[in-house]
């Protein structure tokens, strides 16, 4: 299974009207926010903040799905459903896995953007 489903990214571009600049802005936002969410997740896991852990997993799940990072989204969904009442025993490992997948997804997304979107556009 590929880390990134590029068809989903193409659909996302279509959804927002096909504008390259807007897609780039959206990608940048996701990448910055994704880092913040992963950091929140790691902090929540080590501090035992189940609420933050669940919400972070929930947030990243939705955005990952939008950007075609389906594995990442699935990992987040598992963490979210396992964090309904308490921090799961495997939380640290799950968060670490999510962080790794996010890092990979980031690279894939950047590559996709570099290959498909940025070419021929100004400002990137």
């Amino acid at each position: 299974m590929n880390v990134l489903d590029t068809r989903t990214l193409a659909q996302l571009q279509e959804l927002i009207g096909g504008d390259r600049a807007e897609l780039l802005e959206l990608v940048d936002t996701f990448l910055i926010e994704g880092d913040e969410i992963v950091a929140d997740m790691q902090a929540a896991s080590s501090n035992g903040d189940v609420e933050l852990l669940r919400r972070s997993a929930h947030s990243l799940k939705a955005s990952a799905q939008d950007f075609g990072a389906n594995q990442l989204s699935a990992l987040c969904a598992t963490l979210e459903s396992g964090s309904k009442t308490a921090i799961p025993a495997t939380a640290d490992a799950q968060v670490s896995d999510i962080a790794q997948h996010f890092a990979t997804a980031k690279l894939e997304i950047k590559r996709y953007i570099d290959d498909r979107v940025s070419n021929g556009t100004d400002g990137q």
């Binding site: 926010e33 947030s59 955005s63």
Partner: peptide
């Protein structure tokens, strides 16, 4: 990200 995506759409 979600807010921006929705607003753009």
């Amino acid at each position: 990200t979600q807010r921006m995506k929705l607003a753009m759409a």
